[in-house]
Computed example of a mutant assay.
Amino acid sequence: MALTRNSTMIEARRKARDYAQKRQEREGKLVALAEEFFIAGGEAEKILDAAEAKAGQIMTAAQGKADQVRAAAKIQAEKKAAGTATIIRRMIDLDVPKAEIAERLGVTQAAIRKAAGAESAGTENSDALDEAGDGDDDAAPVDGNHGHDGQPAG
């Protein structure tokens, strides 16, 4: 009987050791996988942080370019607005009442008066430039007796 009891104990110890060894191997694998998990999570966070930084740089550069585009457009729009004042002044030079000009163009009479005033100030400046020799000497004067092309109105 001692032999049977001894062999049973040996078998139980062997099973216990095998079980413990499998548990240790499993635990080692779980620890290694957990390490990989935390490393991957850290790398993912670094990637996202780098992307956010680059996106911020791109947004800053784009905002700067947008500001430049707006500034250039504003200058062009102001030039075109000055051109509309010239057109309004030419209509006034044809002895068209300001009320009729306003109705024809779909704007207020105040806008017509403002444009006429802005054009008067602009022509004074350009006259001063012409006298100094810096203006446009080729420009034909437009008065009430001549059309846009400088020919007598008819």
Rank of each mutant, 00 (worst) to 15 (best):
M1N: 09
M1A: 08
A2M: 08
L3H: 12
T4Y: 12
T4I: 03
R5I: 12
R5V: 15
N6F: 08
N6L: 11
S7I: 13
S7Y: 06
M9K: 03
M9H: 04
I10L: 05
I10A: 03
E11S: 13
R14L: 13
R14G: 01
R14V: 08
K15Y: 04
A16C: 03
D18S: 06
D18I: 08
Y19G: 04
Y19P: 09
A20W: 03
Q21W: 07
Q21D: 06
Q24H: 14
Q24I: 07
R26N: 13
E27V: 09
G28W: 10
G28P: 00
G28L: 11
G28Y: 06
K29Q: 15
L30I: 15
L30F: 12
V31M: 06
A32M: 02
E36G: 13
E36M: 09
E36V: 08
F37L: 13
I39A: 15
A40N: 15
E43C: 12
E43V: 05
A44Y: 11
A44P: 01
E45K: 12
K46M: 03
K46L: 10
L48C: 11
L48I: 13
L48N: 07
L48P: 04
D49C: 08
D49V: 02
A50P: 15
A51I: 06
A51C: 06
A53H: 06
Q57R: 05
Q57V: 08
M59C: 06
M59A: 08
A61P: 01
A61Y: 06
G64P: 11
G64L: 04
K65Q: 07
A71T: 03
K74A: 11
Q76Y: 02
K79Q: 10
K80F: 10
K80T: 15
A81G: 10
A82K: 07
G83C: 07
T84A: 14
T86D: 10
T86A: 14
T86E: 12
T86R: 11
R89L: 03
R89M: 12
M91N: 00
I92E: 09
I92Q: 10
V96I: 15
P97G: 07
P97W: 02
E103Y: 14
V107T: 03
T108L: 01
T108Q: 00
A110F: 09
A111V: 01
A111C: 04
I112R: 00
K114P: 10
A115M: 14
A115F: 12
A115N: 05
A115I: 05
A116F: 06
A116H: 10
A116E: 11
G117C: 00
G117L: 00
E119C: 13
E119L: 02
E119R: 09
S120M: 15
A121H: 15
G122L: 05
T123Y: 02
E124Q: 11
E124D: 08
E124K: 06
N125M: 09
D127L: 01
L129W: 01
A132K: 01
A132P: 02
G135K: 01
G135A: 01
D138T: 14
D138V: 10
A139Q: 00
A139H: 00
A140I: 12
P141N: 05
D143T: 04
D143E: 01
G144T: 06
N145C: 04
H146W: 06
G147A: 05
G147Q: 07
H148F: 12
H148C: 00
D149R: 05
P152I: 04
G154L: 13
G154R: 02
G154A: 08
